[in-house]
Computed example of a mutant assay.
Amino acid sequence: MQANIHPFEKYPFDLKKLPADIRSAVEHFEFYTTSQAIAKSIAAGNLSDSNTLLCWAYFTWIDAMELQTGAEILSSGESALKIIGEILEKEPDHKPSLKLQKYIQDEIKKVHKANKWYDKFHDIPVEKLSLEEAEDFALFLSDCANDEKFKEKEYRLWQRLYNEKPDVRVEERTGRQYYGFKFYYLCRVASVLWRDLGRFEEARPLLWQVINWPSVKDAELYSYNTSNAIEFLLLEAVGKRDEAEFIRLTGLMVSKFGEINEYRRSAGKGELTLIIRENPAGKILEYALEIGNLENIRTIMDHFFAGKVVFIRDAKIKKNMEKARALIS
């Protein structure tokens, strides 16, 4: 699971006020293991304070992010809401709990809505939908559904849009021109094939099409898709322990963002920041340290971990960052 699993910029609970064993479980997060460890500690210590219970509810919800299927969201969501209910019974105005409660309730509503949309459209062949309906349905499935049946439908919808929808649209009322649709739809097709359906060999040439797209003007509009495509291939290189490809792709990531920012400067725009999320960034840094190529480590630290690009919670990643800084200082 490569998506950002944390819904808020900061934890809704106070990490420093947790018992030491629960704080350790949070800092060394693992799906299911962390929530179970918290539950055991709460039961053993007969703990009932709102901060600890909210921590338990939070990581019970986070378990749904491993697979991100509708079934997991409903199951983990209902369990988390039950815990939050215990807090609100004692403290009805507990704002952090109310915030998490609303977020989870909204995500559960999306799953129910996705099921209704699927029931409405799944029997209709993709080619029978209007292009407007196809795009609305594809966007909705992208945002709200992760079950394989939804993703197969989403893939075919994006593919049809890539094949049939014009690359440029002019708004009749204002005459404003919108462009880059072919690039955007190709990004969507490749991402769903690789990330959601695991059809790697089908997706691979499409990812390279995204990376090597000839129009920087298009790529600049959707720069995240360029970094996302390279990220998929980087993580594959990590899994295969392919040092040469890993180092090549790291350089390519920086190079492509350099091209995008050069275009933006020439167009009078501000530069974009390369953003790699915590989970994949941690894996990339760990493998770079394993290889031990100092220039590669420097590139990763300078570009993948620059400033506030990545919000790091994981204790292991923080230690690796310290180790990397010591090596290149």
Rank of each mutant, 00 (worst) to 15 (best):
203 A>I: 06
208 W>K: 00
242 D>C: 06
291 I>Q: 06
247 I>W: 12
251 G>F: 13
199 R>K: 10
242 D>W: 08
278 E>L: 03
291 I>M: 10
290 E>W: 13
312 I>F: 15
224 Y>K: 07
278 E>D: 06
279 N>R: 15
223 S>Q: 07
273 T>M: 12
283 K>M: 15
301 M>W: 00
246 F>E: 07
288 A>W: 07
256 K>E: 02
299 T>Q: 04
300 I>C: 04
217 K>L: 00
187 C>H: 03
298 R>I: 04
280 P>A: 05
275 I>S: 01
254 V>Q: 08
240 K>A: 13
312 I>Q: 08
221 L>W: 11
203 A>L: 01
290 E>R: 00
270 G>Q: 12
284 I>M: 15
273 T>R: 14
318 K>A: 00
205 P>V: 04
185 Y>R: 03
218 D>F: 09
283 K>W: 08
259 E>P: 02
249 L>G: 07
270 G>P: 06
264 R>Y: 04
192 V>C: 09
187 C>T: 11
202 E>I: 06
203 A>T: 00
253 M>W: 01
228 N>C: 06
262 E>M: 10
202 E>L: 10
234 L>F: 12
291 I>S: 13
227 S>T: 08
265 R>A: 14
260 I>G: 09
203 A>G: 11
245 E>D: 13
219 A>F: 08
261 N>F: 14
190 A>N: 08
230 I>S: 03
187 C>G: 06
254 V>W: 01
234 L>M: 11
279 N>H: 12
239 G>L: 13
221 L>E: 12
317 I>H: 02
268 G>D: 02
207 L>N: 06
244 A>L: 15
294 L>N: 02
306 A>P: 05
281 A>K: 08
292 G>Y: 04
216 V>Q: 10
220 E>M: 14
250 T>A: 00
226 T>K: 04
189 V>C: 07
246 F>H: 08
252 L>F: 11
232 F>T: 03
273 T>N: 02
307 G>P: 08
254 V>R: 04
238 V>G: 05
287 Y>I: 13
289 L>E: 09
295 E>G: 03
258 G>L: 11
185 Y>L: 05
273 T>E: 13
229 A>P: 00
216 V>Y: 14
212 N>R: 09
283 K>F: 09
252 L>T: 05
306 A>R: 13
239 G>T: 15
324 A>I: 02
279 N>P: 09
304 F>K: 05
317 I>Q: 12
198 G>A: 14
247 I>A: 15
300 I>D: 07
224 Y>Q: 04
